[in-house]
Design a protein around this nucleic acid. Sequence first.
DNA 1: ATACATGCAAACACTTTGCAGCACA
DNA 2: TGTGCTGCAAAGTGTTTGCATGTAT
Lengths: 139, 139
Amino acid sequence: MIRKTIQQRLVLEAAQRLCHPSAEEIYQVIVRKHPNISRGTVYRNLHNLTASGVLGRVLIPSGAERFDTTMPPHYHAVCKRCGAVQDAAFPYQEQMQNVASTCDGFVLEKHDIIFWGICKECAAQSAAQKNHMEEESAG
Amino acid sequence: MIRKTIQQRLVLEAAQRLCHPSAEEIYQVIVRKHPNISRGTVYRNLHNLTASGVLGRVLIPSGAERFDTTMPPHYHAVCKRCGAVQDAAFPYQEQMQNVASTCDGFVLEKHDIIFWGICKECAAQSAAQKNHMEEESAG
DNA sequence: ATACATGCAAACACTTTGCAGCACA
DNA sequence: TGTGCTGCAAAGTGTTTGCATGTAT
């Protein structure tokens, strides 16, 4: 039986409030108001909450694991520059489950798609820098 | 300028011979015949070889990074039970690059698909175990 | 009352890095 | 001959775990 504790509630609330937070980000938010909470507790609660399906796990290669609350299956876009993770505006490919499930005796359970690129903010920043450099060389 | 060294050649050969090896697996293969090589050197060479495009990097969430030599873009299937990585028998989705590239100001560079499931070997093992249990309860 | 959860710290897995000496171009 | 690479060890990052204590049921 999993018990309700103050720490569990804090972890869940923080995970829901933040956007694709890592365990460390969740810990930092909580520790500000509850200085005694430990990272171990945050990790243990995140483990329980994902195991029981209350939270989702965003498996991003290279870097810390992230968590989310948007439960229907969806994909993620990751910024190569700043590491930000956002839900991808790309429809879930139902048929991919079916098509791929018969390959090579591999029993398919699910699939993830990760879109790698540069997020809006970082792209804008690059553009600004480029403009600035052009102005400099023109002046 | 990147120099050719014995260690670099050993790392490249091991990476090409093994199937989606991790850095540790590459190190273990080399260290058997060359006991003086260090993990640091293996990591540095893997970094150089992927940076120069000679090797590919398979970014598997949760667990060690893996390397491969199959250069044309393709996807991977990962066994949840044993962690084995194989190339997915699923065609590369050219159109996904185009369709997804305009979303939300995100500048798309590439995409990865990871198929999660149970590999042939592990599935066979499960089936064997199940059969065995049924025989036991029947006998 | 008694599991289960907590805080703490140590351990863990994977990877990077600083340094002194070595070796390739 | 000089820069880049090596082996070694230490440190860094993200996560798990053992233990004594605390607390929800």
